[in-house]
Nucleic acid binder design. Structure first.
Lengths: 226, 226
DNA sequence: ACCAAAATATGATATTTATCATGCGAAAGC
DNA sequence: GCTTTCGCATGATAAATATCATATTTTGGT
């Protein structure tokens, strides 16, 4: 079993507030998992009795809408924690989490984490700060959905994927989403998303190579995205 | 100066976790304000050195979008706290708060509130739970904006106003928003909003009397809203 | 009470976006 | 290896929504 004390990822999450003692205890009670692309970490409505710390990989958080379509609310990557909200509010999770590529995650049982809230104020403050950041992001997301066109949102999302997850050696986006997933992130029909990608391709803002997407003209994309 | 200990509103907010001693101290350091409809409590980008506790009235939280239009992110009413996020993350507020009707609010300076975080774990937990609820709501909001039509969103918003703020003696919605504000809540053009209200009126789902809106057929509205 | 300005309303039209239909190519299952 | 399915692509069309123009009504100020 790997030691949390030496886990680099810890430094990026609220867990960085933990003391040496707490980390040692954490190492003993955590469970590590390796997940394949497509694996479901948890599903909307489930009870998750603890939190997941993402050591490597990326997953999507989705929510089922009234019309039966999944909407991708957020992408979450290494260093971030999953399931805090459900644990704090003592409710079933309201989002599903699915691996977008191979992942390594550690599960920390609820009892352990709740102890930190009681005894370690820094930890509580870190969690609160994270949630404040999430809320701010959510507001931005809301306004973008309400006010921007699909084209603007697509450009913004491509830039977000580029800036947050980087590119491969061949310059293509590291995070590979299907057209359907991309559409579900920006909130549009799959065909509309495909059509706009084709347009961007024709205007040489991006290049398409099968599933791969290469951003060719970042500054123009930024202008479109606002 | 009124005593926080006797303020009913306190029971609805995270402040309910405070001890008698803390409440007494709070009474001394808070400042009470009476605000007229339209008054600006704070504006996006400002530094707010504390939190506001709403004793009475309703305000809108808005965010300026890239195209220069205000979007109403949320309505906040008595019992709720304003400006927590900004205080916790130590950043300027990212939303503006404007009174929708006459309000009574109390301002509590940052130093006082930060003390509660340190010493009163129940308070921290309450704040966290509130933020978890806000995040959940934000997810729902995001999915609605992404997947529902303007008509569905209008119906849902009317129902929300009805359920959250109630009706006057003449059955009209207690919260009176201008068409522009309503449009800015559901994320559409003012004209589109007006047109759909007219449609609802013709279908006898609602009745319009100047600015007043009366919900006549709640169950049909619910069907439309999903 | 009167006027100017703002809010509401509605028509005409343009634009954006979704939906339906179809084809094509690659990947997955037998 | 073959077929079947799935993801991507594109055209045609319909529906939703925004925009511009212009009345009409309401509101606020003096």
């Amino acid at each position: 079993m790997s030691k949390c004390e030496q886990c680099i990822v810890r430094e990026f999450s609220s867990l960085k507030a933990l003391t040496k003692d707490e980390l040692l205890k954490l190492s003993d009670c955590k469970t590590s998992y390796t997940l394949k692309k497509g694996a479901v970490i948890f599903e909307e409505g489930e009870n998750v009795n603890g939190i997941y710390c993402i050591k490597d990989g990326v997953c999507k958080l989705t929510k089922l809408s009234a019309n039966g379509k999944d909407h991708i609310v957020k992408l979450v990557t290494k260093g971030e924690l999953l399931g805090q909200r459900s644990m704090i509010s003592d409710e079933p999770v309201n989002l599903s989490a699915v691996a977008l590529n191979d992942m390594q995650v550690c599960f920390i049982p609820k009892a352990e984490v709740m102890g930190y809230f009681d005894k370690n104020n820094n930890f509580s403050m870190n969690v609160m700060k994270t949630m404040c950041g999430d809320l701010k992001e959510a507001d931005v997301q809301t306004v973008n959905l309400a006010q921007k066109t699909v084209k603007e949102r697509l450009a913004a999302t491509l830039l977000y994927l580029y800036q947050s997850f980087g590119e491969n050696d061949d310059k293509s986006l590291k995070i590979q989403l299907s057209r359907e997933e991309l559409a579900s992130m920006i909130g549009t029909a799959t065909e509309s998303c495909i059509r706009l990608l084709s347009d961007f391709n024709k205007q040489e803002l991006i290049a398409l190579d099968g599933k791969k997407i290469i951003l060719k003209d970042i500054s123009s994309l930024k202008k479109i995205a606002n």
